[in-house]
């Protein structure tokens, strides 16, 4: 089982998954925070934070997931009140209308939470809503192998973390 480890995020990848944990280059005053992409298909070199450029490549048996960190100003807000990453999702958590980009046949889910003192969202896309019964276990397998370490977040005045 391959292990990815960077920027305080660690993922032991289940079979057939690949992924990357990265921080985008800083642009102007923007402060980028870590983003992790995971997929059961070949991720192209350039993928937008929430899967733009990747989800269109998904087959019906594929899964795509994002772990996206927000800035420290998000800590303590109602959106991130949930403590801890969801570890087990059900098929009912995935809906076609939860997709950031509505592609026919796909479905998604999104969760906001605080883990180890860091605000995150977890967003997952299934290649086929019809096959969610077979695909959701892959997402759960990924979730059970994700961990986040406490990491001091740099505070940059005037910078927006909502990228």
């Amino acid at each position: 089982m391959a292990t990815l480890r960077a920027h305080g995020i660690e993922a032991r990848l289940p079979d057939a998954f690949e992924g990357r944990i990265f921080i985008r280059p800083r642009v102007a005053n923007e402060v980028p925070f870590p983003v992790a992409h995971f997929a059961t298909f070949a991720l192209p070199g350039q993928v937008a934070d929430f899967g733009g450029g990747a989800v269109t490549l998904m087959g019906p048996n594929d899964v795509f997931a994002v772990l996206f960190e927000y800035g420290p100003e998000s800590i303590g807000t109602r959106l991130f009140a949930r403590q801890g990453m969801p570890r087990v999702l059900s098929v009912d958590d995935f809906r076609p209308n939860l997709l950031r980009r509505g592609l026919g046949g796909q479905s998604g889910t999104q969760w906001f939470f605080t883990e180890s003192g860091r605000p995150f969202t977890f967003y997952a896309v299934l290649g086929s809503h019809v096959r969610r019964g077979a695909l959701v276990p892959h997402v759960n397998s990924l979730l059970s192998n994700l961990s986040v370490n406490p990491q001091p977040l740099s505070v940059v005045p005037g910078a927006s973390a909502w990228n």
């Binding site: 391959a2 990815l4 995020i9 990848l13 057939a16 990265f22 298909f41």
Partner: peptide
């Protein structure tokens, strides 16, 4: 096996060369 490591910029990257429909 899956190739896992870091990028030159220090990010983490894992590439699964098996389990897909393409040649790598």
């Amino acid at each position: 096996p899956t190739i896992a490591g870091v990028t030159p910029s220090g990010d983490a990257l894992a590439i699964a060369v098996s389990g897909n429909d393409q040649l790598t």
